[in-house]
Write a protein that binds this DNA or RNA. Structure first.
Lengths: 214, 214, 214, 214
DNA sequence: AATGAATGAGTCTTCATTCAT
DNA sequence: CATGAATGAAGACTCATTCAT
């Protein structure tokens, strides 16, 4: 991992990205996501990303994004927004904690089913991108954190309202998030389950694991 | 230019490793595990491994293991055996499926707590080691497969004996495995839970998710 | 470990070489030819070529040519063109087969005398450059083939017109080509013969070996 | 090419090879010849030779031969003796220069046809083996010299006796040697000529090129 | 907004040879 | 007669980044 020195020498890098990201930027981000998803983080060199993006020189990437880390930052944000757009609204309209939990699991699984490359890429990046000191740039659980952070309030609310039993909310949130990850494998590797089947199984497990014992 | 042709090139690789792996081999494997766990797979170069092992030249590694892939193979086997030694016997003495499931979760979590570097390293290797065609050498779920394969028979037996309800055994196995992974995060990242607390939480969840509804 | 996948790895190899090969490319090709001629193919490492070319890093070579094989391809083409430019026209103006044969031998020998390094380098490359399967990249007779292919039509025409006797045209072409190679030794190793003396001897031999017996 | 330092340290290398070369030595020499013939000089590493010889360690090679150069020396001698045994006697019984020339060409071609690997290996070694100063260890024409040195006396005798016309005997010897080399290509690369056909063609050419004009 | 040229550090692997026993 | 262990040098090639225009 290279020591990032300030790019003092460069004279003409676009100082502030325009509000509407340029087509070039999107093109590169898309190519990077595909490349990372397919070949893995370590193999996703500027050269291979450029090749997939159909641009002649890697210089365009560093021109638009500066360093590789900055490109990754943008990718992570892009993917997170993609998921949020699809998930948040479906949860908002729920009134009970159990309903919100169910809705969130369902929406999450549907997003995963729809954007497999995004899932893979986010995973690769969060597990491999490291700073110059060797530590993970996005944290080992970066891909998890967003989901966990969104799940925990639901769980706490369920406990407060009496819908859910007592348990460690953070670990339960992690477990549900992990169960969703498990469903990814079940959806992608034969013998495959459908999205709906996974939703059925996971929501059942979540319900059993969280509800007050009768 | 490289005439790829097995590793015939290595002058005199020890043809048959002695039954008790040499001290040097163990030393290198241990250093490699530590390096991978701390810095990640991509950063675990021969140079860094050699440095940690306290040997003068990277040549010693390729001398003993041939290629990096072969070193990784040995590490994976070593780690798997380490886990098996600790887990298998504790499960064997159980008579009920629920008991076996409980014992396995507990033993697994204790192994994880005891050998964190092994866990990390196995994870890094299985997620990053790739063959020349770009595919994962140990499969995306390699670190999972062993556990899943061990869990599923327990679940099926539980369904057969009537202890467990009906569910997709493979997905349930994956989910339990993932719940254990989730506990890893909970054990390692503050605010930390103790091993016993994790055992308590996870076994409860597993019991609730699998038992016949009353 | 190496993910062999074309030379996608090179960050930004110049996509399309400008029509007039850049000065740098020519400089490197020239240095490579000299190095190969003097030290032999196996010793002509990027490091030694770079040193002779007076460039700071071997990276410049792989930047401009990608791989060593591609550099060799360029050298071979360059040398072949050099020879063709000098030889073809002198043969074209001949009207008889005997005349053409004589002209070709003469032109070939003059080219050899003038570009000894090119001759040596072409020889070294064709005899040593090998593909990943171990086979010769340019064929054992690559340096010969061009000459043989040029000679054979002349010989066949001579037989057709009745100037020449019956013989195996391919073997005769090979023999004449080899006789020219023999003259190389005679020109370069003491006691030396002059180019003209060699022309005289070889054309005499060729004439005697091909003409219709009286 | 490594600077050969005296092997002062080694305590037990066989000081003088026994008169009858040991079976091990022959085995290694044979494996080396095959390896060089098939893969080329540069690829004929100790490791690959050992592999083909079926011995476990390259140490055996350096044990028996000291350095690679010494192994090559032995190979060259071995091959030269092989050829001499087969050729010399057939020439000796000739009484005329033309007869001797004919006999030598024939015997040479038959040896080539019979020991193709020896031919290839000798060629590879003479063209590639270099000393620490970069110069060819056996000379560019090493494989040629023996034949040339044997041919020239025949040619001079033929000129003295009046059988042959005036020509540069050294160049003629080289040319005939080269014509034989040409026949190698003709014998080994399709469309193939038989040995006898090659003998016929080459001896005809040699006769036409050398005899007194009528 | 884009591009060509250049670069130094780093990767794994291969090499013949030497030190021990 | 044989072998296991170790080694330093060198190989081609890949990497993200910077300098120019």
């Amino acid at each position: 991992m290279r020591v990032t020195r300030g790019n003092t020498g460069d004279t003409s890098e676009p100082a502030q990205r325009s509000l509407a990201a340029s087509a070039r930027r999107s093109q590169i981000v898309a190519a990077a996501i595909e490349t990372i998803a397919e070949l893995g983080y370590a193999q996703a060199s500027f050269a291979r990303i450029a090749e997939r993006a159909g641009i002649s020189s890697t210089r365009l990437i560093s021109y638009h994004f500066g360093t590789k880390d900055e490109l990754m930052d943008e990718i992570v944000v892009e993917i997170a927004q993609s998921a949020d757009r699809m998930i948040a609204e479906r949860v908002a309209e729920q009134t009970t904690a159990a309903g919100a939990l169910h809705a969130r699991i369902k929406a999450q699984l549907h997003w995963i089913a729809r954007y497999p490359a995004h899932v893979q890429a986010l995973y690769e990046i969060s597990m491999n991108a490291r700073g110059s000191d060797g530590s993970l740039r996005y944290g080992m659980a970066a891909s998890a954190r967003a989901n966990v952070d969104a799940l925990e309030p639901i769980l706490r609310e369920g406990q407060r309202s009496g819908e859910f039993r007592a348990f460690d909310t953070q670990l339960m949130a992690l477990t549900i998030k992990s169960a969703i990850d498990a469903a990814i494998v079940r959806m992608w590797q034969p013998p495959r389950l459908s999205v709906e089947e996974c939703v059925q199984e996971i929501t059942t497990i979540a319900a059993l694991a969280t509800r007050r014992s009768s």
